[in-house]
Amino acid sequence: MSVDRFTGGLPAGAPSPGTSFTDLLRSLDLAPEWKGSGPEGAVQAPEGTTVLALRYSDGVVMVGDRQATEGHLVAHRRIQKVFAADGYSAVAISGTAGLAIEMVRLFQTELEHYEKLEGTRLSLDGKATYLARMVRSQLPMVFQGLVVVPLFAGFDEATQEGRLYTFDVVGGRYEEQDFGATGSGGRDAKSFLRGAYRDDLDESAALDVALRALIAASEEDTATGGPDIQRGIFPNVVTVTAVGYSEVPGEQVAAISSAALEGLR
C-alpha cells in the first residue's frame, strides 16, 4: 500500500489486526516493555491500595481510595485510581501504581482507537478480554514483585445492565455478579460487602454501601487511606449507567463519607 511506503509524516506499516493501537506501537518499536531483571524486590515503587466496585439497579459504582504506599511509607495521598476506560466503562487499579497508570492510559487509547477505526465500540466482554491480555503481558514483571491487578466495570449496551470483572495476576478474568474488590484492603472491603450487599440497591444506597466498604477496609488495612476530612481528601467515586460514565461530585462524596464516619463514633 503506497501510504505505508511513502509515509510522509504518517505512521508507516499496517499492523495486523489493523485496529489494535498496541500492535501499531509495537510495529514502530514504541510499545511499553513489560520486562525486568534482577532479584525480586530490587525495585521499590509506590503501590495503589484498595479499589472496589459493585452492581446496583442502574449499573455499577466504583470506588478507589487516594493513597499510594511504598513499604510502610505513604508515597502519595491524592493519587487517582479510578479512571474512565471509555464513555461506558471504568477501570480501577491496584498494585504498582506507575505501571498500572501506564496500562490504563494504553487501555484507554486502545478502546478509543478501535472505536474510531471501526466506527463502533468494542463489546463490554471484548474490552474485559483485552484488559486481561494486557495484565497477562505484564507477567514477567510479576516475578520482580511488580504486580498490577485492575478492576473493570461498565454498562453493557447490548444487555442494558451493569457488569463487572475482576482479574488475577496472570490475566485471569472473572465476571462478578454482585461486587468485587482488589488491592491490599480488598479482602476487608469484600468481607464488609458480603454482609452489606443487597440485590436491589438504588443509586444512593449503592454509593453509601460502597463508601462504607472502603472505610471498613481503611479501618483494617493500614495502607488504605479512608476519607481524610482534615485535608479534605475523599475517595474517587464513579458510576456507569445507561447514560454512560459519570464522576460523583466531590461534595456528594464528602457528605456521604462524613455521615458514614459519624456512624463509627
Binding site: 501510504v3 509524516g9 504518517l10 493501537f21 501499531l24 506501537l25 474510531k116
Partner: peptide
C-alpha cells in the same frame, strides 16, 4: 479510507506519546 486510518493512527500516536 486508507488516509483516514493513517490520520487516526497519527493522532492517537501523538496523543499517547
Amino acid at each position: 479510507e486508507a488516509l483516514r486510518v493513517a490520520g487516526i493512527r497519527h493522532a492517537d500516536l501523538k496523543g499517547y506519546l
